[in-house]
Design a protein around this nucleic acid. Structure first.
Length: 505
RNA sequence: GGCCCAUUCGUCUAACGGUUAGGACAUGCGGUUUUCAUCCGUAAAAUAGGAGUUCGAUUCUCCUAUGGGCUACCA
């Protein structure tokens, strides 16, 4: 086993947008594959054609691409094990189902869905809330185990609809070692005769997933905890086919930030954070916002996701994708579900914004601003503003004054600081400013200090006024750096314009 | 209801039988800053409960409680 190349798969069904829990599953698969120089592939599980949602597959691929965790095999990507969409593999599954029937591991069942729901209803009335199609009940149902052989043949020849069910043995302990949870044991008495092949000619998830994982030479099945209960069935199927079983790792769930339960798309609307990696427009026109559109960097999103259920065992929290690959191991994945924390997510984003090169931020900002300003200027703006921003947009909403003259002046600051004598003081300061030869922050600052000393005033009595006139705000970055960036002429102009504006108030 | 899985500060988690139970986010309070943010310091904050095993249990076992998942011809 140690010599066989690692191959893992992410197997979403195209029933809608991929939510962040799914992205995390994909991420862990990606990290595990890269860590072991293996292959990460994607397989679309669309065996339930009634739940197909147009656009979902494209959404999934696009989202993974944005996250930077693209598989190397999959639909549209090529690979030696295709096709990678189960509906396109439809013809491959039937022979495997037949094989199980021949080996008496499975059987035909003719009961209709209506028969079954009636059966369950009846059982419920008799105080049995979990009726199952299994070892003890199948004898009284319509199937190739209970019906005479000629009757079975007659029905098959007649084209009666049927499904193929797994013949679960009685009272067998199925055990497997989960990479995260250790040994898991389930008795077959608690597993029903699952449908493997549906009457519409498609396999169910259970059959398709085993056949495909085998054919695609999957070595590790890393998936959500919701699959844990059906893992024993899957183990039984591998045994029934006589195939090697891949290793299993069942990931803890992502929970709502408040209360309990699985994180759902509704929680995002309710609590005001994205649940999806990118925007999704549902068929009825409803829009679910994504992390991308909210302004999160994919690196921050991925970093946050990686830490929801995994940690490196050190105090390092900021990890590039490559660093995650190097550090990731399944044995450091937690067992218990993790409540999603929107605050921590913002913190990760803040860290990445702060750590980014100014020029890079400027490029992103430039796109938002439609190339309206020069990249050089935007680079300085980003450098000045990024310490107090979380998203690129914040840089602009807080720092647009650097490129646009202020139209409004912060009311609170005006009320608090703008006094009768302020106008004269600022006019005087303006004159002093105009006398500075080399208009750089350092000189402006020393000139300012001299000015204060001459006027016998404190910083707090002068600088806020200067800031107000130049930026319209009561807070922000260093005034001396701002002044240098604006340039002498602009500073003097703004002081003059500002004074005029405040006179009217 | 049945089966399975889980349970350390409010949240994410560390501590693979011996620690003053550690870190991060959020929160409170200080310091730095013209201001805001940053940054620095600091405080408060947890082993669900009960039995065992052991010289010693957060750690191992069992029971209870709580939470979650599954219980479809869905994935």
């Amino acid at each position: 086993m140690s010599n066989t190349p690692v191959r893992v798969r992410f197997a979403p069904s195209p029933t809608g947008p991929l939510h962040m829990g799914g992205v995390r599953t994909a991420l862990y698969n990606y990290l595990f594959a890269k860590k072991h120089n293996g292959t990460f592939l994607i397989r679309i599980e669309d065996t339930d054609q009634t739940r197909f949602v147009p656009g979902a597959q494209d959404y999934i691929m696009d989202a993974l691409k944005w996250c930077g965790i693209m598989p190397t095999e999959g639909p549209g990507l090529g690979g030696d094990f295709g096709p990678y969409i189960q509906s396109e593999r439809k013809e491959m599954y039937r022979p495997y189902a037949d094989e199980l029937i021949k080996n008496e591991k499975a059987y035909y069942a003719f009961d209709s869905s209506e028969d079954l729901s009636q059966m369950r209803e009846q059982a419920l009335k008799m105080g049995m809330p979990n009726w199952q199609y299994n070892n003890v009940t199948r004898g009284s149902m319509q199937n190739s185990l209970s019906l005479p052989a000629d009757e079975v043949q007659r029905r098959l020849d007649n084209g009666d609809p049927y499904v193929i069910r797994m013949k679960m043995p009685r009272n067998v302990d199925v055990r497997f070692e989960d990479e995260i949870r250790g040994w898991v044991v389930v008795n077959t008495n608690n597993v029903d005769d699952k449908v493997l092949f549906k009457s519409d000619g498609m396999p169910t998830y259970h059959l398709a997933n085993i056949v495909d994982d085998h054919l695609m030479k999957i070595t590790h099945v890393i998936r959500g905890e919701e699959w844990l209960p059906s893992a024993p069935l899957h183990v039984m199927l591998y045994e029934a086919f006589g195939w090697d079983c891949p290793k299993f790792a069942h990931l803890p769930l992502l929970l709502k930030p408040d209360g309990n339960g699985k994180l759902s798309k509704r929680d995002g609307d309710r609590l005001g954070f994205p649940v999806f990696p990118t925007d999704w427009k549902s068929e009825d026109g409803e829009i679910y916002t994504g992390y991308r559109e909210q302004g999160y960097f994919p690196e921050a999103f991925i970093n946050m996701l990686a830490f929801l259920g995994w940690n490196p065992g050190t105090t390092q929290e900021i990890f590039s994708l490559d660093e995650l690959v190097a550090s990731f191991t399944l044995d450091r994945v937690a067992k218990a579900g993790a409540k999603f924390d929107p605050d921590k997510t913002k913190w990760f984003q803040q860290q990445y914004l702060r750590g980014a090169e100014n020029a890079l931020l400027a490029e992103k900002l430039n796109i938002v601003l439609d190339n309206k300003y020069s990249l050089d200027k935007l680079t300085v703006v980003c450098g000045l503003m990024k310490e107090r921003a979380t998203f690129i947009e914040d840089i602009w909403t807080e720092g647009s004054f650097l490129l646009e003259r202020p139209i409004e002046f912060d009311e609170q600051t005006v009320n608090k600081k703008w006094k009768d004598e302020s106008e004269a003081l600022m006019a005087e300061w303006s004159t002093v400013l105009s006398s500075i030869d080399s208009f750089v922050a350092e000189n402006i600052e020393s000139t300012f200090k001299t000015f204060l000393a001459e006027k016998e005033l404190g910083i707090g009595a002068v600088l806020p006024l200067f800031r107000l006139l130049l930026t319209g705000k009561g807070m922000g970055p260093s005034m001396f750096e701002i002044s240098e960036f604006l340039g002498k002429d602009e500073c003097i102009a703004r002081i003059s314009i500002g004074i005029t504006s405040l006179q009217k108030v």
